[in-house]
Design a protein around this nucleic acid. Sequence first.
DNA 1: GCACATAGGGATAAAAAAGTCACTATTATG
DNA 2: CATAATAGTGACTTTTTTATCCCTATGTGC
Lengths: 112, 112
Amino acid sequence: MKTKERSSENKICPLEVAVNSISGKWKVPIVWQINEGKKRPSEFLRGIAKVDRRVLNQQLKEMEQDGILTKVSFNELPPRVEYSLTELGEKLVTILWMLNDWGKLMIPAEED
Amino acid sequence: MKTKERSSENKICPLEVAVNSISGKWKVPIVWQINEGKKRPSEFLRGIAKVDRRVLNQQLKEMEQDGILTKVSFNELPPRVEYSLTELGEKLVTILWMLNDWGKLMIPAEED
DNA sequence: GCACATAGGGATAAAAAAGTCACTATTATG
DNA sequence: CATAATAGTGACTTTTTTATCCCTATGTGC
């Protein structure tokens, strides 16, 4: 999910940039799961229910380009790739925790 | 954007609920603009660039159902409707400010 | 009557995102 | 040789989301 036109198109809005960078069905789950340190694509595939390999790669790639994740490819066989949070990504986790707390406030009402 | 299946489908994840409730192209801009107090749909239309009336209504409706916005309809002619943030919505603004700060960290790199 | 403003919605089209399938390549194992 | 891991992608379909168009209704001003 690249940076597209949203509310404002002339000036760069930091909030817009931020929201764009985490707008993707599996991006927040990815950040949420990686917290332990490193994770391989295959681990994400097993951990995050029904993510497709194709889509996972897309989102990982975008997050890497956005500076949220770091990718390390080992020259081994079978191939090994590890993703970890950058400093920026770790700061995001802090905000996600707050969003998580905020989300708790919505649950009683949405529990239908 | 209703609550759909994301990472986990059995247990309710507050973060998932939170993210779902603000996943919508104009939802964050709406919250971001309403901070002053109240806003009429027509004001959003003029304020947020190219939002379409139809889409705006959809997102306002969902946010009202999610408890983020409060809608007040006045029985006047021409009709008047005002949206304002609920307590929950105001708490969201706090988090959006942090996301905004976080987004600033991404801008130098993305300024191509 | 016509145009404008207000708020709202049905039917439909377009665009964007996500998902599916099949293939690449390599080594080890049976 | 077949199969299973590993990571990755091109071509394509499906689903979801957003946008467009045209209607409703009401009162004011021309």
